[in-house]
Structure formats: C-alpha cells, structure tokens
Amino acid sequence: MKNFILFLFVLATLSMTTPHQSPASTPLVTDISSHLISVTSDFTGTELLLFGATETGADLNYSEHGDVIIVVRGPEEKVVVRRKDRVAGIWVNAVSIEFTGVPSFYAIVSTKPVADITSANVLNRLKIGPTRLSFKSSEAAKESHPFQQAIIRKKTEENLYSDQETDIHFLGNTLFRTNIEFPANVPVGNYVAEFYLFRGGDLISAQTSPLFIKKSGLGRTIFDFAQDYPALYGIAAILVALFAGWLASAIFRKD
C-alpha cells in the first residue's frame, strides 16, 4: 500500500510537467520506491517498485514513445567454479576456474523482448541480459564459457538472476512501472538500477539510481564484528558452541 501511494504521488507530480517542454530536455524521468533495503534476522525477501515517465511531444503516437529496459545489478564478487570428473570410479575435482567481476545479483525487466527493442551489438555492449554478461578469468573464452554458463544457471536457480521481459507496464502514453523481487538470500552491498529508453532501436536516454542493501539490528552487529575481527569472531563462535554443548549435556544428563 505504501508503494502504491508513493507511485500515485509521483504520477501526479509528473503529470504537472509543462506541455510545451521539449522532448529532448528530459526524455526519461525515473525513481525507485526505496533506495535502502534493511536485512534483519527475520528478512524473507521483498520487492521494490521502479517507475518513471518518458517525455514526448503531444503529436506522437503511443508506439513512438519508445521502449524501456531496466537492469538491477548487485555488487561484484569472485566465484570459483569446479568441474568434477570420474577418476578410478571416484568423482573428484578436476578443473577449476576463478572468475572476477561476477554480479552477485542481476535482474532485467523490459516492455517487450529485448531482442525486439535494439540490436545484439547494443545489448552486448550494455550487457543487457544474463546470457550477455562477461566475467573475467585467466582462461580462454572458449574454455571458460561452460563454467560461466554454470554460474548463470546456479544463480538463476537461487533466484539471484532473473529475466522478466515484457514485465514493464505503461499507464497511459508515458507513465510506466514495474516490480523487482529480492529473495531472502540477496547479498548485501551497493546496487545500481539502470534505466534505458530506446526509440527505433536507438538508445535515447539512460539513467542510474543507487540502491543499498544492508544488514540491520543484531545481524548487522554480528556481521560487522565478523568482518572487522575475524579471529575473535572465530574464537567466540567456538566458545559459544562449547558452552551450548555443555549446557545441553547438563540439562539432559541422566542422574
């Protein structure tokens, strides 16, 4: 309900734009319902509302207002992918490749299939679509491609990568909105939402908005302590485990 009220307020604000304003001045106006997601101990996932408007001349038809693509990228990380081979009847790790620059989260939404919006060259240059992501590795592209596909497949299964084409909806001729879901296992860090406006296959305008996902409450305190003092955190974890074991044995000990 809060997101819906915010969206209505923005629609009213955008509708007050001067009708004689030049289309080239502000071709794309966008925003997010919230730029901060707090992850607590009972966090089960959430969704954000992304919305905006495309500015055009009054004499243009709906089909000429263009198409919108929105991409949300999470912080980059290192990922090691291992391939198991059967040796003497036993499955062992045979080959491993380390990738860097892997988005921990990636979601894309668009007004229609992206292949129908612009050319493959533009999509590859902007890295729009999970299959068009390129990760850095020390191996040749041909050899690392199956491993990269394994990363995309695994993250898709974990709901960290998603491709929701045709999921941006226009309200009238210029206003658009969509929702992007963030699962309970979403990594914390700094995110960015990228908005692209295309007309006739050409990129007309692009905007970015920051998004932050942070732990809060007790979970945040423990996370910061583990990151700042890993040795002390390890010792504390061992002591807590020993105390829990002793307490359990004392409670259930037979007299």
Score class of each variant (00 low, 15 high):
Q148G: 13
L211M: 04
Q148A: 10
L175Q: 07
S144A: 15
T156Q: 10
G189P: 01
I213P: 00
Y161N: 04
R220Y: 13
R220F: 14
E194F: 06
L203Q: 10
N179C: 05
G189S: 04
R199E: 15
T178V: 09
G217L: 11
F212Y: 03
Q164V: 03
K142S: 13
L160Y: 08
I151Y: 08
Q148D: 03
G200P: 15
R153W: 06
G200H: 11
P146V: 02
I151H: 03
I204V: 15
G172F: 08
D167Q: 11
I151D: 03
Q149C: 09
I168S: 03
A206I: 02
N185I: 09
F170W: 09
R220K: 15
Y191K: 01
P146E: 08
L160M: 08
D163H: 08
F170E: 07
F170T: 06
I168R: 02
N185L: 13
H145E: 14
S209E: 05
D167S: 15
E181A: 14
L197D: 06
L203G: 04
K142H: 08
L203F: 05
A184R: 14
Q164F: 05
F198E: 08
R220V: 02
V192Q: 02
G217I: 09
E194Q: 13
L211P: 00
G219V: 13
A184G: 03
A184M: 06
T221R: 15
D163N: 12
P187E: 07
I168P: 01
S162W: 01
P210M: 01
Y161W: 11
G201H: 11
G200I: 10
L218F: 15
D202T: 03
R199K: 15
E157N: 10
K142A: 11
A150H: 12
K214Q: 14
T174W: 00
N179L: 10
F170G: 02
P183H: 09
S162C: 08
L203N: 07
D202P: 01
T221S: 15
H145A: 11
Q148R: 12
K154V: 02
K154F: 10
G189D: 03
F182H: 03
D167A: 15
Q207D: 12
Q148F: 02
L171Q: 10
Y191N: 00
E157W: 04
A193S: 07
E165V: 09
H145F: 05
V186R: 00
P183R: 04
A193N: 05
F176A: 02
T174V: 04
L211I: 00
I180N: 01
D163A: 05
K155I: 01
F195L: 06
S144D: 03
K214A: 15
L203A: 09
I152T: 13
P183S: 03
I152D: 08
P210D: 05
F182G: 01
P187L: 06
N159D: 14
V186L: 09
S216Y: 13
Q149N: 15
